[in-house]
Simulated assay, not measured.
Amino acid sequence: MSGTAAIQTPPNNGGNPKGWPENPGWGKGKYVTGADLPKKIYVRWQSLVEPQTYKMVIEIPESTRELMRREEKVFCAFDGKFITDYREALVVNLAPGGIAKVWVLGPCLPPIEVTTVKAEIDPRGPYEGKSGGKYDSLTDVSKAYVEKFGVPYGSWE
Rank of each mutant, 00 (worst) to 15 (best):
T64S: 14
I41H: 00
G14P: 05
G3K: 00
D85K: 04
D36M: 03
S137W: 15
D136T: 03
P152D: 14
D79H: 09
N12W: 09
T9A: 07
C108E: 06
T115D: 15
Y86H: 09
G97H: 02
W156L: 10
N23W: 14
C108S: 07
T139V: 03
K28F: 13
V92E: 11
D79M: 03
E113C: 03
A100E: 09
A5V: 08
K143S: 05
Y127V: 10
A95Q: 06
Y153L: 06
M1L: 08
Y86R: 15
V102W: 00
I7R: 10
V74T: 05
I60V: 12
T53N: 06
P110L: 10
K55I: 10
Q8H: 11
R124F: 06
G80F: 01
A77Y: 09
I60N: 06
Y86L: 07
G132T: 09
L67G: 10
V57I: 12
A95M: 01
C76P: 00
K143F: 10
R69E: 15
N13A: 11
W20Q: 08
P17I: 06
G150I: 01
D122Y: 09
V114R: 04
F78I: 11
A35S: 14
D79F: 03
N23A: 08
S155L: 02
G27P: 04
V104H: 01
R44N: 05
F75E: 12
E71Y: 04
G150R: 00
F78C: 14
K30P: 13
W45I: 04
G34A: 03
D36Y: 01
V141H: 12
N12Q: 10
P107D: 09
A89Q: 12
S137A: 11
E120I: 06
T139Y: 12
N23E: 15
K101H: 13
K118Q: 15
M56W: 10
R70V: 03
R124D: 15
P11G: 03
P123Y: 05
V91F: 02
G97L: 01
E157G: 06
V102I: 01
T9P: 04
I121M: 06
T33Y: 14
G3C: 01
S137P: 10
A35Y: 08
T139G: 07
P21D: 06
P24V: 05
G129N: 01
N12K: 09
M68L: 06
I41G: 08
T4D: 13
P110K: 13
E22D: 15
K81F: 12
E88G: 13
T84V: 14
L67V: 05
D122Q: 11
C76Y: 03
S2Q: 11
S137H: 15
Y86F: 14
V117Q: 05
W103N: 10
R69K: 14
L67Y: 02
K30E: 15
T115R: 03
Y31H: 13
Y54C: 04
S155V: 02
N12R: 11
A6N: 10
Q46C: 09
I83H: 07
D85A: 07
S137N: 13
G25C: 02
K18R: 15
E147G: 08
K118H: 13
G98H: 08
G29F: 00
I99L: 10
L48T: 05
G106L: 08
P111D: 07
V102F: 02
Y127T: 07
F75L: 08
T33W: 06
G129F: 07
N16H: 03
K148V: 05
K28V: 13
